[in-house]
Design a binder for these strands. Structure first.
Lengths: 202, 202
DNA sequence: TCTTGATTTGACCATCTGGTCAAACTCACG
DNA sequence: CGTGAGTTTGACCAGATGGTCAAATCAAGA
C-alpha cells in the first residue's frame, strides 16, 4: 500500500484499470458472484498486485459505486426549473435512455445492488438520493400547480422514468430474447416520448 | 434419494418447505450469493438432509424457477382478445401490480436471474416467453389496426408494463427509501392506470 | 550509478462452500 | 412387533476464495 502521497502515474493507471475490470465483473455477476481472481485476470494483474491497490474486494466495490453514483444521478440533477417543463422532462428521459444504451454495465451494477436490498448503499439512498429526488419532485409539483404539466403523483412519475429507461439495460437479455434482431434503442425513444407527452400534456 | 414411487407425506412436506426457504434465500441474494447451508437453516433441515431431497443447489434453483415461470406469466396469458381492449390491458397491469405487491420474492428471483444475463433460463426466454409475447402482441396489433387502442410499438408497450409494475418489487428498497412512510401501492395503481389510459385511448 | 521507495509476485493460509457417505434412526405396514 | 424402505445426521472431503507476506524487481531522483 503506497503512502498517502500524490498518486504516481502507475497508481493512477492501475486504479483505473482495476475499476474498469471490476465494473465488468461486478455488473455481470453481482458482488457475491464476482471473485477477486476474476477481476484481477480481467485487469491483467496478479491477485496480490490488485490487492496492493485496494485493500479488499469490498473496497473495490465501494469505490466503484460511490464513484459512479454521481454520474448516475447527473441527468436528474440537470433538470432545470427554468426550462420548459415538458421539454425538460423529455430531455431527462432521453438522457436516461442514452445512458441505458451507452452505460449498461453501470445500470446493472446498481440493479444488482438494489435488487438484493442495497446492503452497501442503503445510506446513500435515504440521504443523497432522497434529497435529490425531493428537490426535483418539488419542481415537478410546482409545474403542476402552475398547470404547465398534468397533475400526477410526482414520485411515481420519477419511478416510472427510472423503471422504463433502466429496464433496457438491466433486463437486456430478456428484451433481446423477445425483440430478436430489432435494436431496442430504435423503437424505445419514440415510445417513451409518446408515452410521457400524452401523460403530461395538461 | 427416494425411488421414483409416489412421494410420501414427508417428501411432499419437505420439498415444499425447501422450495419456500430457497425462494427466500435466492431472491434475497441471487444464485451465487445463496448458500446451501443458508437454505437448509431457513428450511429447518440439515444440509445433508436437504441434499437428500434435491441433488444439488442448482437443482433447487431450477425447480424453483421452472415452477414459478408459469405463475409469473399467467396474467399475460389471461389477456383475452375478445374482451374490451383497454379494459383487458388495464386489468393485466393491475394484476401485475398486485403480483409485485403480493409476490415480491418471486419478482426478485427472476430479476436476479435476468440482470445477470439469465444464465439458467435463457432458453425459456427465447422459446416459451417469446412465443407468449408474440402471441399477445399480435392481439395488441390487431386492436390497433381496428383503431380500438392508439397505435404504439406493441413490444415496447409490453416492456413498459413489465418495467413499471415489477420496479416496485425489484427495487423496493429504493422506492421505500424515497417514499418513506408512504405505501408505494397506494399511489401506484392510480398512476399507472392514468398513464396507460392516456397512452392507449385512441 | 546508486539508493530508496514503489511495484510485483509465488507461495501460502484460513475459511467457506457444495457435496458425499456410512451409520443411525424412524415410520408404515404385514 | 419385526422388517425393510424411507429419513436424518455427524464427520468428512476437495476445491474455491479472500487475503497475507516476505522476497524479488522496478523506477526515478540525487
Amino acid at each position: 500500500m503506497p503512502k498517502d502521497r500524490a498518486p504516481t502515474r502507475i497508481q493512477q493507471k492501475n486504479r483505473a484499470v482495476i475499476l474498469e475490470a471490476a465494473l465488468n465483473v461486478f455488473s455481470a455477476h453481482g458482488f457475491r458472484g464476482a471473485t477477486v481472481d476474476q477481476i484481477a485476470a480481467e485487469a491483467g494483474l496478479s491477485k496480490p498486485n490488485l490487492l496492493y491497490y485496494f485493500p479488499s474486494k469490498e473496497a473495490i466495490h465501494t469505490a466503484l459505486l460511490s464513484g459512479l453514483l454521481e454520474v448516475w444521478l447527473a441527468p436528474l440533477h440537470a433538470l432545470n426549473e427554468n426550462g420548459d417543463p415538458l421539454e425538460e422532462i423529455l430531455a431527462y428521459i432521453q438522457r436516461k435512455l442514452e445512458m441505458s444504451r451507452d452505460l449498461p454495465r453501470e445500470s446493472r451494477l446498481f440493479a444488482n445492488e438494489l435488487v438484493q436490498g442495497a446492503p452497501r448503499i442503503h445510506d446513500a439512498l435515504s440521504t443523497d438520493l432522497k434529497k435529490l429526488v425531493d428537490e426535483k419532485t418539488a419542481i415537478l409539483t410546482r409545474w403542476m400547480d402552475q398547470e404547465r404539466i398534468a397533475r400526477v403523483h410526482p414520485y411515481h412519475l420519477i419511478f416510472s422514468i427510472w423503471a422504463l429507461t433502466q429496464h433496457y439495460a438491466d433486463f437486456e437479455v430478456q428484451v433481446r430474447a423477445i425483440l430478436g434482431d430489432e435494436d431496442p434503442f430504435e423503437g424505445a425513444p419514440l415510445f417513451v416520448e409518446t408515452l410521457y407527452r400524452k401523460l403530461l400534456t395538461p
